[in-house]
Computed example of a mutant assay.
Amino acid sequence: MKYLNLFFFCFVLSISFFNCENETINNSNNDLNPSKTYQELNISYGNDTDQIFDLYLPANRTANTKTLILVHGGGWSSGDKVDMDPIKDLIRQDLPNLAIVNINYRLADANNNPYPMQIDDITTIINYLKTNKIKYTISDNFGFIGTSAGGHLALLWSYAFDTQNNIDMVCSIVGPTNLTDPLYLNNTNAELQAMLDLYGVNAEISFLEEVSPLHRVTATAPPTILFYGAQDPLIPTTQGTNLRDKLENLNVTHQFTLYPYGGHGWIGLDLLDTWIKLKAFTQTHL
């Protein structure tokens, strides 16, 4: 699940070449003047070393300023918020009025299952931002962009745990949506199975449904934008198309793109297409 980040990095380099600007970043914890940009890295929200996030606040923000939360991938057991820095840079360049929170979360291993641990971490971050919204001069309205396992977490939290309707939009880029998919239950891919086993070897179907966005989505779900690659060795096309169809049946605002030659990430014009669509969707719904 590491390839997607390289593709975004290359894309950022290509467009930033034509749009380089000097900007002043306020790194002082004592100066949160809303007329100035503000950056604070590695804010702790728990006792674990992985429970940190980076905060980027735009200049001239108000109590209506909305926040995009970035959730990295890595098969629930690896990855880091630095992987999302290229997307963060794109947002700061093209959507400069948004605040950004780029998160780390506790990583799963043989002794620590992803669920509910990682969902609990997202809940803690959301609650932290809501508690400090006056301090940071932001609203309590948020959007998600998640890649791979981060896309799964973003969808699951938005569909099943947003009890106060704080999420205005959610984006999943090659995120798993249904752990009960027959193509998962009967797969022969050792790398894929090792990731799925983090949710339990021979886990009950009822539990796999509980951790699957496809089985948790309702008609009140936020607008959702999905991107998938038809050649992805880890995420079968059905992970995207089945959620697309359910969103359609529920009349949830959504947009779906399947790249015929895309794998677990893509480059070139397909990647440009991803950002154009994601930018427009964010501008409309966040």
Rank of each mutant, 00 (worst) to 15 (best):
E210R: 06
T284Y: 10
L272Q: 12
F281Q: 10
E248D: 10
T188R: 08
N113D: 05
L208D: 12
F17E: 00
D197L: 06
R216S: 15
G229M: 02
S28F: 09
N251H: 14
T284E: 13
S158H: 07
N113W: 01
Q239E: 15
E191H: 10
V252M: 05
K246R: 15
L272H: 13
L258H: 02
Y3K: 15
A203C: 13
A110N: 13
D31P: 04
D197W: 03
G175L: 06
G75A: 08
N166S: 15
D162Y: 03
I145H: 00
P86D: 05
Y228P: 08
S206P: 03
D140L: 04
Y3R: 06
T37E: 06
S148C: 12
T37S: 13
E248N: 07
Q239L: 14
L70N: 00
F9T: 06
A280R: 13
M117I: 14
L57S: 09
A63G: 10
T147M: 03
L32S: 00
N127M: 08
S158M: 03
G75I: 02
N97K: 14
G150E: 09
V12Y: 15
S172P: 14
N102F: 05
T188Y: 09
A280L: 13
W157R: 08
Y45G: 11
K36M: 08
K135M: 04
L250K: 01
R216L: 01
H264I: 11
T131R: 11
L258V: 04
F227I: 10
N165Q: 14
K66L: 06
F227D: 02
E204H: 05
L4A: 14
F142W: 04
I100C: 03
T188G: 10
L198S: 02
Y56R: 01
E40I: 01
G151Q: 07
L286E: 05
T188H: 12
